[in-house]
């Protein structure tokens, strides 16, 4: 698998680390209900298909959001977290 780091360009999978669903960018407010934190930390849509997820490009230290298909492994788009949350 190859992913495109928004800063470095296309690179082999071995340069990247996966974190999980891009919902990790949507951290609840500090005073949010425990249920909101539970969903943020644990509950996942986990689709068999297109999804948005967080990856880390280890050599350059960039985080990015990848739109990827979990059924086919096709990577449709990658972007910086800032672009993703715009």
């Amino acid at each position: 698998m190859r992913l495109t780091c928004p800063h470095c360009g296309e690179r082999d999978l071995r340069e990247f680390a996966y974190k999980g669903d891009a919902l990790a960018l949507s951290r609840p407010e500090a005073n949010a209900e425990l249920q909101a934190w539970h969903e943020y930390l644990h509950i996942r849509d986990n689709p068999a298909g297109p999804t948005r997820e967080l990856w880390y490009h280890t050599p350059c230290g960039s985080w990015m959001v990848a739109e990827r298909d979990t059924a086919t492994h096709a990577v449709h788009r990658t972007m910086t977290p800032a672009e993703a949350t715009k």
Partner: peptide, 13 residues
């Protein structure tokens, strides 16, 4: 392989 998948196959790394 560390990334979410339903493909029942992995990659080289």
């Amino acid at each position: 392989d560390f990334y979410a998948s339903y493909a029942q196959r992995g990659n080289l790394p």
